[in-house]
């Protein structure tokens, strides 16, 4: 699996004020559950992304705590009510302390 998880996000570029938009995110990550064993019978240590955060103009609007039961290459979709133009910051926190981020702009007319 890729050493560097690659986030992908889909946010509409434009929305009208008050419109409900759906935000879809995906990140490449093996989400090793800590349940599997390698060929020598040793348990493969857990390494998952345990938290996903979405902030808009610096304010957290949605959070998800992921447990080991979340599939590899985790997908997360949620909704957001467009009120003003701004920028989303998405953060994924890995068990090993790494953080992966992505940004997306939204223009509200």
């Amino acid at each position: 699996m890729a050493a560097n998880p690659t986030p992908r996000v889909r946010v509409p570029a434009k929305a009208t004020k008050g419109e409900m938009i759906e935000v879809k995110t995906l990140i490449s990550h093996e989400m090793e559950s800590g349940q599997r064993k390698d060929s020598a019978g040793k348990t493969i240590p857990r390494k998952i992304i345990n938290k996903f955060t979405a902030a808009f103009n610096g304010k957290t609007v949605f959070e998800a705590d992921w447990f080991a039961a979340i599939s590899a290459n985790p997908y997360q979709a949620f909704f957001f009510k467009a009120q003003e133009s701004g920028e989303f910051t998405f953060t994924w926190k890995d068990d090993d302390g790494s953080e992966y981020t992505a940004k997306a702009k939204l223009a509200v007319a």
Binding site: M20, S33, F56, K59, T60, V61, F62, A64, W66, A68, A69, I70, S71, P74, Y75, Q76, A77, F78, F79, F80, K81, Q83
Partner: peptide, 14 residues
């Protein structure tokens, strides 16, 4: 948060 506008979310699980 109220900013979500709608309390809905989708993901995939094992």
């Amino acid at each position: 948060t109220p900013e979500c506008g709608k309390a809905a979310a989708a993901t995939r699980m094992r």
